[in-house]
Design a protein around this nucleic acid. Structure first.
Lengths: 130, 130
DNA sequence: CTTTATGCAAAGCGTTTGCATACTT
DNA sequence: AAGTATGCAAACGCTTTGCATAAAG
């Protein structure tokens, strides 16, 4: 991504940001595309992809690489983990109270300088357990 | 994957398993393909893909979905996490001493029945820090 | 008016699959 | 002999990119 470029505020960009911030279900690019298209029917998938990456690089939204084969996006929030139901694909957030400690602990263990981490828990949600 | 089928032991399958078990660097399908091809030049990529998945489903190797955009594979081992160097892409293993506790704790927190979890730490390795 | 952003379509990359042939059992 | 596995190539799903046109500043 080229940071020497002066960014412009476009209708598409604002709309995409708004939809990701509003959404609760960690939408994929395709999901965002469908949401935005309701109000801007002529928007293209390519534009959605480009803007999602751009918004990430500007720190306005966050990208989840670890849930399934698709990339998903979410609004910026306190650091948290995710639980995935292996039956229905529901994804929920978990807010740990020792996130920073983990970064430190693993940094010492490995001699890496850790910038962040994430964790995904897999299982069966309460509804699917019945 | 069809479990009613009776599996056969082929030269290709044995070779693929051996290479994954031997490898220390969490190889991708393409990596395994290159390794195996040194000794079996006519093996196809499709065969590698099919067998990696098959070996996973039989519990003989383990699949890592969370490192980067490619799937990677590793030998079966005690549960562990991974650290990724954002500069040189090196991947190392971390053996936590409270893996099981985390499953329990998150199960209570979420009311999910957690079967497993994994964590990836991102940062800069000691060599790349200089 | 200059430059960035869009829409569209084609290409890219990792992975999967259909099919005829070869190999295991 | 029966049935699974292979090699090959085509297809797939998600993402990226080239290019002419539109919009922002």
């Amino acid at each position: 991504m080229d940071f020497s470029i002066k960014r412009r505020s476009t209708r598409q960009r604002r709309m995409i940001l708004k939809e990701v911030k509003k959404s609760k279900f960690h939408p994929s690019a395709e999901d965002v595309y469908k949401l935005v298209r309701k109000k801007m029917p002529r928007i293209s998938l390519g534009t959605v992809y480009r803007n999602l990456e751009l918004l990430c690089s500007e720190g306005l939204i966050f990208r989840l690489d670890n849930i399934d084969s698709k990339r998903r996006y979410e609004h910026i929030d306190n650091p948290h983990y995710h639980v995935v139901c292996l039956r229905c694909d529901r994804v929920e957030d978990i807010y740990p109270d020792n996130y920073g400690k983990w970064n430190e602990a693993m940094g010492e263990y490995t001699n890496f300088k850790i910038s962040h981490h994430n964790a995904v828990f897999y299982g069966t949600c309460s509804e699917c357990q019945t």
